[in-house]
């Protein structure tokens, strides 16, 4: 088993001549919750999509558990995209069945328990749900897998503070032991206390890679305050 769950070597991705990721070198250990923090357009989603195997690098290399993203790594990676990819006409129950068919590490009982606790019926269709409820359903699906790497792209984006708390609590109480969770967001104050490590990304480069408590001890300020300083407009 490779020691690092994610490794990038001189990783670059360009869209039509513009570099979204600018020759990134990065190694992420197992067993941590990591915040991928940066302003809009800094390369957060591009990095996550490369790790999820949805994009291919322009140059350089990205490895998940020591392997190039592909069929095998997709079995190890549980990915929550920024935008919903689920069909609106499906019901919660149908989606649970679909995940059960797709992923051998999916725990349908756990997913159903979490849906029950939120009062979501198996028969409820996605299109009848509010935005917040839809986000919660998708997170429940993603966190009900026993993956080695969870890639969560803006999981608390468009939801209210109470729903944010629910989502973060669901993440910390459900991720598989020794697995790593990457959470991309710009809502740093909300995620700060669940993070082990903060990665600041700017213009396609990782500019800070540090343990959250180290930042607080060395800088005497929160990650949120440091972020505001580093990315001051």
């Amino acid at each position: 088993m490779s020691e690092m769950i994610l490794t990038c070597k001189q990783l670059a991705k360009g869209y039509g001549g513009k570099l979204a990721l600018n020759y990134v070198d990065l190694s992420l250990p197992r067993g941590e919750i990591i915040g991928l923090l940066g302003p809009n357009g800094s390369g957060k989603t591009t990095l996550i999509k490369l790790a999820a195997g949805i994009l291919t690098p322009t140059s350089g290399e990205i490895l998940v558990a020591g392997e190039k993203p592909g069929v095998h790594t997709k079995a190890l990676v549980s990915y929550l995209p920024e935008r919903s990819y689920l069909n609106d006409w499906m019901s919660a129950g149908q989606i649970v069945d679909m995940f059960h068919d797709f992923y051998s590490d999916f725990d349908a009982v756990k997913a159903c328990e979490m849906l029950d606790r939120l009062g979501i019926s198996r028969r409820d269709k996605l299109k009848t749900m509010s935005k917040g409820t839809k986000e919660k359903v998708q997170l429940i699906l993603v966190m009900s897998r026993s993956a080695q790497l969870y890639l969560l792209d803006e999981p608390i984006g468009g939801v209210d503070p109470a729903a944010r708390d629910y989502i973060l609590d669901t993440i910390i109480s459900n991720y598989a032991e020794n697995s790593t969770v990457v959470i991309s967001t710009h809502l740093i104050a909300d995620v700060e206390r669940v993070l082990d490590r903060a990665l600041f990304i700017s213009g396609g480069k990782i500019v800070i890679n540090s343990a959250v408590d180290d930042i607080r001890e060395k800088e005497g300020k929160s990650v949120d305050a440091l972020f505001r300083e580093v990315f001051k407009c």
Binding site: E32, I33, L168, I172, S173, R193
Partner: peptide, 14 residues
């Protein structure tokens, strides 16, 4: 540890 972490809404490692 997990129960306490969930109660305090913090990372289990912390």
């Amino acid at each position: 540890v997990r129960e306490l972490a969930a109660e305090a809404s913090v990372n289990p490692n912390t």
